[in-house]
Amino acid sequence: MTLAATAAHLATGPATGAAAGPHGFLSPTGVEIAFLLVGLVTFGAALVTVTTRQLVHAALWLVVTLGGLAVEYLLLTAEFIAWVQVLIYVGSVVVLLLFGLMLTRAPIGRSPDADSGNRWAALTVAVAAAAALVWVVVDAFRTTWIDLDGPAAGSTEATGASLFQNWVLPFEALSVLLLAALVGAIVLSRKAKADTATPAGQDTGRDTEGAR
């Protein structure tokens, strides 16, 4: 009697738990299935990025990861962020990384010393952090539901209006930061060869700085 009662309670327990929110995990919507599949591809590409021994392949798998994240932004109706992600990350950051790999004369084939000796410690830390974070996040947001119907929350109009109504001062400060980063990168890459550069080279460097 009591055993049957506990069995019935156990059987109805998860159902009532899922029914606390109107949506359960066992009947995913189409958006959720698409998010899950793209998320698996993104996570797999990220794993290959941090584990492959071919340096150029790591950069190319990073493209897959960032593109998958752009698709996730689109599925979350944040279309402006998605296109910014494609433009800046896939368009410029990965190209910069590839330039960096080639300028530091990275080996094309397999490089056996791509991973350092503390790989197992790093794996332990990462797995422990992942377990803790996933546990906490799932426990906290198990029943939280994002309503994706209606007008898009991240359309260009909404993002632009909020950015230029409420976030103008940080936006302008960010432009100053970008300028500082630009000048800093120029100075850093110019100073290293200052001892061998001719005065003409220094002058042209200064001219480009003035032009910017």
Binding site: H23, T29, E32, F35, L76, V125, V127, A130, L133, L148
Partner: peptide, 20 residues
């Protein structure tokens, strides 16, 4: 969409980057 899906994906990606 459940908020848990993007939250878990971002936690996993973060830890992948941490390992890297």
């Amino acid at each position: 969409m459940h908020l848990a899906y993007p939250a878990v994906l971002s936690a996993l990606l973060f830890c992948t980057g941490l390992y890297g």
